[in-house]
């Protein structure tokens, strides 16, 4: 692994401005993602993991306010980019798959035009070129290219999710941010999709920031994992470490709250505080 990180988040602090008091959603978070690496961010709802994902793409909107910190992507601070540079940055460098991404496709456009939208804007492709690229990308996610003439509602949830991932990768981004990409899908489909992403990142060399609350899944998929609690990154380590030697009390409790499929079923403690 190279020593130069692709993405380096330094002392990031984000507040949501309130009428009476501000709410600190992200508190002094520092993390690095290296080229080709899958970094997982785990935690419960409201712990700030999605806020970080949004900030990396500069998608945060008021009342969210970045108090301090830097987000360096290939050495350049994302927070300093002007509108034009930002347009260049999004999709090209960092693509994002949202939580219910399967609902983020435009229902009245054929899949091919949703590819064309992006490819025309960023690469100036003609329709024919876009179709060619779309076919290539769809094949990557195991969807027959003929189906690009179909509308989103003609696909199942899992297929739509794969289409979104294909669109995200059409511009060969360096980093794909995935915010709970498979939570709405069932386990078999989830496995198929993540396995495919795992293959793709090995072949194409992009990095992934993977956000979920399912620690077991995270250990299977990620190289390194960060655990968040109320805005702070309380523990960071390789998947191995997080699984075998969790250090922080909260990580241990998170593990304890998963009923396991193997081993002793009744060893679980009461609900976490």
């Amino acid at each position: 692994m190279t020593t130069v990180p692709l993405l380096s988040v330094q002392n990031l602090t984000i507040d949501y401005i309130g009428a009476q008091a501000d709410f600190r959603a992200v508190d002094d978070v520092t993390l690095e993602i290296f080229p080709g690496e899958v970094f997982g961010l785990a935690g419960e709802s409201g712990c700030g993991k999605s806020t970080i994902a949004y900030a990396i793409n500069r998608l945060h909107k008021p009342p969210a306010l970045i108090r301090h910190g830097r987000i360096l992507f290939e050495g350049r601070d994302v927070l300093d980019l002007d509108e034009k540079a930002l347009k260049e940055f999004r999709w090209h460098k960092v693509a994002m798959v949202f939580q219910s991404a399967m609902n983020s496709l435009n229902p009245v456009l054929r899949v091919e035009s949703q590819f064309h939208d992006l490819l025309k804007r960023h690469r100036g492709y003609s329709k024919a070129q876009s179709r060619e690229r779309a076919a290539e990308m769809l094949r990557l996610v195991d969807i027959p290219p003929e189906r690009m003439r179909d509308y989103p509602h003609q696909f199942s949830g899992g297929m739509r999710q794969r289409i979104v991932i294909a669109i995200c990768m059409a511009l060969d981004p360096k980093l794909v941010v995935m915010d709970e990409p498979t939570t709405a899908l069932d386990v078999v489909v989830q496995r198929e999709i993540l396995q495919r992403i795992d293959e793709l990142r090995r072949n194409r060399g992009f990095s992934v920031l993977f956000i979920t609350h399912d620690l077991g899944l995270m250990v299977q998929f990620c190289d390194r994992i960060g655990i968040m609690l109320r805005g702070s990154l309380v523990e960071q380590g390789t998947s191995e470490q997080i699984y075998h030697q969790p250090q922080h009390e909260y990580t241990k409790r998170l593990w304890a709250s998963f009923p396991s499929l193997h081993g002793d079923p009744i060893k679980l403690e009461r609900a976490l505080g």
Partner: peptide, 8 residues
């Protein structure tokens, strides 16, 4: 089923 014992 997600199983931390087996990596992808």
């Amino acid at each position: 089923v997600p199983n931390p014992e087996i990596r992808f």
